[in-house]
Every structure is written in structure tokens, then in C-alpha cells.
Design a protein around this nucleic acid. Structure first.
Ligand SMILES: [Mn+2]
Ligand SMILES: [Mn+2]
Ligand SMILES: [Zn+2]
Ligand SMILES: [Zn+2]
Lengths: 143, 143
DNA sequence: CTCCCAGTTGCAAATCTTCGCATCTGCATA
DNA sequence: TATGCAGATGCGAAGATTTGCAACTGGGAG
């Protein structure tokens, strides 16, 4: 069912209980490239295992996010979306408020901010999935 | 009713229609120091003007946020909160995931990030109200 | 292998937020 | 001051997300 042995071992090692529902949610998110809404995750989970409840999907999405295994994306005027946080492919998003273009930012793009916060406040910024907004290059040029 | 002449003039100049409901929502948010939920804003609006609907409050909170006049705060496990964006007192929030302490960040704390994004992607970061998470100095030291 | 229980689930209901639509109104214009 | 209409409102309903609770179960201890 799942081909995420490494992650599953990681969870087990963390003393996390691995239910079939949880494994399925993980599996669905990790088998998609895009950004899925909770409902889309539910649909796919449901296709495999019709008795699983939508609330269980929500609970596991929250859980997996807290574990740092999935990231969430909040875009203006649409439901929250989720995506896999793949080792080495972590990224954040920068959304153009003018044309809607979405740019992927590398974890490294935040390092200056990270340094600033550590320096000024002793605050250790967590590498959580961020969504920033602003103007993309094209739209800024046009304005 | 309202003592925010400057802001109201600003809105009028932007060709925005100023209804009594909108002015009230603006007034309520600007007369509070803390972070109010939509429901708390509604309660206070309702005390002044009982016929105003909750959906109107929501619509105006969204509207005023889009105008950059109020900021929103999304904290884990609680409804969205709103606060006034006062000229010269703009700030962001850094939340400690361990003890819940909330730190205020100055707009200037983001300037290194702003510079990085502009430099690397030509992306113009908007000074939107951000909430970052991580570990505060005390909790980081304890860990 | 069996027992046990903290953590998880399904379900129903609550809470939070958005939307459709008929009606209303701020305010620009004449 | 009267008129017109784009945009705003109230209300009901829908959509999105969270929660309470009794029953169930993964996986460690014996
Ligand atoms: Mn992404
Ligand atoms: Mn604040
Ligand atoms: Zn753009
Ligand atoms: Zn702390």
C-alpha cells in the first residue's frame, strides 16, 4: 500500500502509532505532486478505503503537519491545501498578488531572515512551510 | 462615531464606499489594542448597531485586510484574529511553538528577506502581516 | 500469544467562514 | 436636490474545519 518505508520507520521511531488511516493519508499526499485540499485527499483515501471518515483525514493532516511531514498552503479565497515535505525538496511559496503566479522559494532563501531573528531576538525560526505574497518580477516591472 | 478621519479620507480617496457598517468595523478594530476574533468584533459592532449581520462583519474584515488597514493572525487551534495596522506601528509576530510566547517583529526585521527575494527572484515582498513560528530564546536555551 | 490502555476512529453535532441573491444605498453626476 | 447604479447589505444556506464521545485497536509489556 505504501512505499514510504523511510518515513514510516521515522514515525515508528518517534513512538507514533501507525494506523491504516494515517498511512493512507500519508500515502495519498506523497503520491501527488501538486497541492491537495483536504477534500481531495479524502476522495482518494475514500477510493481505497470507503469507511474512513473526513474528520479522520483532517485529524491526520493536522497530525502529519505537526510532525513536519506535510506542509500547508493557504491561498486567498480557497480551502487550505497540503503537500508532501520531501527531504531535500523543501520549499516555500511566494504568490504574486497581481497575476497569481506562484514562485517556489528554497529553504536557503530564508536563511537571512533566520539569521536576523536569531541575532536580534534569540528566536530560532522553524523551517515551517511559509506562503509569502508580493509582486512578481513581471508585474512589478509593469507597474 | 469614528475618530479615524485620516483613514477614512484615505478610503474615500481610493474611491471606496464608506458604509456605516464598514466604519463601525474599522472603529471597533482600531479601538482595541489586542487581537480580536471575528466574533468579538461582531459582538462589539452589534452592541452599537444590532441589525448588522455577522457576514457583513466578515466581509468588511476581509475588505479592510485587503486594503492593508488590518492584519490577521492565525494561531494554531483558534479562530483567526484581527488587529489594527497603525501607521508606524506595523509589526509581525513570532510565536514560540514550545511555550506559546509571542514576540513582535518590526517591519525592518524582514528587510533582509525582502532584499534576498528581490535580488534572487525580482520578487517584491509585500509588507503583509506575517506570523512565524519557532523557539523563543528561553525555550531554545532549555533545549 | 494474550492483555492492556493511550491514542485513534467513526459519527454526529458544533463552530467558523463564505456565498447567493433580492434589496438597498453611498455618492458621483447632472 | 433628484437620479442612477456599482457596490454593499441582511438573511438564509452552504462550505470548511473542529470537536465530544463511546467504541475500537496498534503495538509494547508480560
Ligand atoms: Mn509547493
Ligand atoms: Mn499584534
Ligand atoms: Zn505577477
Ligand atoms: Zn518559548
Amino acid at each position: 500500500m505504501s512505499c514510504h518505508g523511510t518515513i514510516i520507520d521515522q514515525l515508528r521511531a518517534a513512538g507514533v502509532r501507525l494506523t491504516p488511516q494515517r498511512a493512507l493519508v500519508l500515502d495519498v499526499v506523497y503520491h501527488t505532486d501538486g497541492h491537495l485540499t483536504a477534500d481531495q485527499v479524502y476522495e482518494r483515501v475514500h477510493a481505497q478505503s470507503p469507511q474512513v471518515d473526513l474528520s479522520t483525514v483532517y485529524r491526520n493532516l493536522v497530525f502529519l503537519r505537526q510532525q513536519g511531514l506535510i506542509g500547508e498552503l493557504r491561498l486567498e479565497g480557497q480551502p487550505v491545501r497540503f503537500e508532501a515535505v520531501r527531504a531535500g525538496r523543501e520549499h516555500h511559496h511566494a504568490l504574486c498578488t497581481h497575476c497569481g503566479a506562484m514562485l517556489e522559494l528554497a529553504q536557503a532563501d530564508l536563511s537571512s531572515l533566520q539569521a536576523t531573528l536569531l541575532d536580534r531576538y534569540g528566536f530560532h525560526l522553524e523551517p515551517v512551510h511559509l506562503t509569502l505574497s508580493g509582486l512578481c518580477q513581471a508585474c512589478a516591472a509593469a507597474a
